[in-house]
């Protein structure tokens, strides 16, 4: 059974249809890269999987359970699927450690000590074991994004959605974040990443999805997508004529 089953998903904002029937099945442990021009619907697709947007047609199932938008079920879903954002979105009034602890104690009712232990472990995993008490504003962009990853990991999700998580970073900070994601991939985490880092996609991902005008335009293993693109749109996107 696939971990995430996306079937003919449609999403409109007002009159404009942004997702025009997406089909995509993701197996546990897969690492998917979603590429495509700005505005092609990549973020919207991730947001639909996480229930931040409600879909207008088709269906999304995570671990066999359909995403309905009903409150309690949404909560279940989000415990299974974490999300990392372009803008980090750390809680600015809480220290790095507290950022990682908060949802554990509030949503999962994990006891404080246990939550703290997990937070320390997760911060360690992203190389920030010594910054537990730092406020977000005291951290670099790369460090903030790594805290955001630790925060999502602490919920023990089955899959992580990453939406251009290095796009807001200064170039010299990109590598440290990608390194963390690479490690997660090696450890078997299911990842769906929207990215412009083509080398990363080529080296780490099991499959690459090229989105164009709200559709999955081309899909395949990285060798095929990057090595032998079938459609002119993908060739153009990759800068080959």
């Amino acid at each position: 059974m696939s971990l995430i089953a996306i079937t003919d998903v449609r999403k409109s904002f007002g009159q404009t249809e942004v997702l025009k029937g997406i089909d995509l099945d993701i197996e546990p442990g897969e690492v998917i890269a979603i590429i495509g021009k700005s505005g092609s619907g990549k973020s919207t697709l991730l947001r639909c999987i996480n229930g931040l947007e409600t879909i207008n047609g088709g269906s999304i199932a995570v671990a066999g359970v359909h995403v309905s938008g009903e409150d309690r079920q949404l909560r279940e879903l989000r415990l299974k699927v974490g999300m990392i954002f372009q803008q980090f979105n750390l809680f600015p009034h809480l220290s790095a450690g507290r950022n990682v602890m908060l949802a554990q104690t509030v949503v999962k009712k994990t006891p404080k000590e246990e939550a703290r232990r997990i937070a320390e472990e997760m911060l360690d995993r992203v190389g920030l074991g010594n910054r537990f008490d730092a406020l977000p504003e005291e951290l670099s962009g790369g460090q903030q994004q790594r805290v955001a990853i630790a925060r999502a990991l602490a919920m023990k999700p089955a899959a992580l959605l990453c939406d251009e998580i290095t796009s807001a970073l200064d170039p010299e900070l990109v590598a440290e974040v990608l390194q963390v994601v690479r490690k997660l991939a090696e450890e078997g985490m299911t990842l769906i990443t929207v990215t412009h880092e083509m080398n990363f996609a080529r080296e780490v991902c099991s499959r690459v999805v090229f989105m164009h005008l709200g559709k999955v335009h081309e899909i395949g293993p990285p060798e095929a997508v990057f090595g032998a693109p079938k459609t002119p749109e993908l060739r153009q996107f990759l800068g080959m004529q």
């Binding site: 931040l52 989000r78 979105n89 009034h93 908060l102 949802a103 949503v107 999502a152 919920m155």
Partner: peptide, 27 residues
């Protein structure tokens, strides 16, 4: 309060009340 704060806390599974109480209101 930035929209991202709502989205980040929602993506962690918090209910609206929990988001308000722990993330939005303190800020």
């Amino acid at each position: 309060i930035a929209k991202g704060q709502w989205e980040a806390s929602a993506s962690l599974g918090m209910s609206r009340l929990e988001q308000m109480r722990h993330v939005i209101l303190p800020q």
